[in-house]
Amino acid sequence: MIGIVDYGMGNLYSLSQALKRLDQDFVISDHSSELAGTDGLILPGVGAFKDAMALLNEKGLSAFLTRYVQEKPLLGICLGMQLLFEESEEGSLTKGLAFLSGRVARFSGISQVTGERYKVPHMGWNTLEFKQPDSPLLNALEPDYAYFVHSYYAETKDSSILIATADYHEQVPAVVGSGHIFGTQFHPEKSGVFGQALLKNYLDFVKRM
């Protein structure tokens, strides 16, 4: 059983439908008591980092997730991935769940190479570069396009957590992970066949745990 953490930020319908297409049982909940019994969690999210952390703290889910990931797997998607890091500069500086080392920063909108302006949000299909092709999340996958939509990205000095990256004027961590904690900056539920296969890899990983 997979738990989708519903803390009030995000479009859970598409994700739940993607799990349905993979014949995966799931529960959508914001109650730690309900989520505790699951084999693995997915933390989705769109919107602002600060609001998301406030809701997770308010609902007691931050503390719950910290305990949960001691033993069981978690996959953060988009904002849900960013929440796994230590802090974000979105709005005012806000502390994250700090499962992964690094901070979340806004795209500057100005290329460091050419000095030219570029568009923010990073929106659309971008190619991935696999840094750790042997990661369970990339099992049997070839680098492909994935669908991104975000204005902030994770900056990390810890290259050991970079599983795949994308190039959008900055090196954008696209798939991150440490142990059984994972995150994708892109939306696997919106990334066609590739995204579906990556989600399935996570579900398979959960089953093997």
């Binding site: 319908y13 439908q17 939509v149 939306h187 539920e189 919106k190 990334s191 066609g192």
Partner: peptide, 11 residues
């Protein structure tokens, strides 16, 4: 929208 989102895996 619900029916489309149930099947379609692109935005």
């Amino acid at each position: 929208v619900k029916a489309v989102a149930a099947k379609l895996a692109i935005p």
